[in-house]
């Protein structure tokens, strides 16, 4: 895989620069975008896609024939520099686990409430 990217010319970029520019411009704060910055963002995005794919692929050494969503979510969850993707590629959970989490939270709230009530009672007693 390393050879493949090596044979590509250094300047070549596969992602369409016009589209990259559109996405860049959709950010409200941006005024002017130099051509070289569009090029560099396109190139960086390419490197980023390669990086994300290879890291996710390495994540699960047992399955060497598929790249699944779960692998990506795992990498995003683990790597510091991929934290910005936490909302874009969230970890999936099954409904059963979700309900258990909700129940746990409610129980904790309940316990906290009881505790505070108890403390109040103690306060009034003393």
């Amino acid at each position: 895989m390393a050879e493949k990217s090596g044979t590509k010319p250094a300047k070549g970029v596969v992602l369409p620069m016009a589209r990259i520019k559109t996405i860049m411009r959709s950010s409200a704060e941006i005024t002017n975008i130099g051509q070289e910055s569009v090029y560099l963002v396109a190139k960086a995005t390419e490197l980023f896609i390669q990086h994300l794919a290879t890291e996710a692929f390495k994540q699960d050494p047992e399955t060497t024939d598929t790249l699944a969503y779960g692998d990506l979510a795992e990498v995003v969850n683990d790597a510091d520099n991929l934290q910005f993707l936490a909302d874009v590629i969230p970890k999936k959970i099954v409904v059963r686990d979700y309900l258990r989490m909700v129940r746990q939270q409610e129980e904790e709230k309940e316990r906290a409430k009881q505790q505070s009530q108890q403390e109040e009672r103690e306060d009034t007693d003393s």
């Binding site: 990259i20 996405i23 860049m24 959709s26 950010s27 704060e29 941006i30 963002v41 960086a44 995005t45 980023f48 896609i49 994300l52 794919a53 969503y69 990506l72 979510a73 995003v76 910005f84 993707l85 874009v88 590629i89």
Partner: peptide, 15 residues
């Protein structure tokens, strides 16, 4: 997911 991540990467880098 990777496609979405790439778009977000572009925005993040731009910002």
């Amino acid at each position: 997911a990777i496609s979405r991540a790439a778009s977000v990467f572009v925005l993040y880098a731009t910002s």
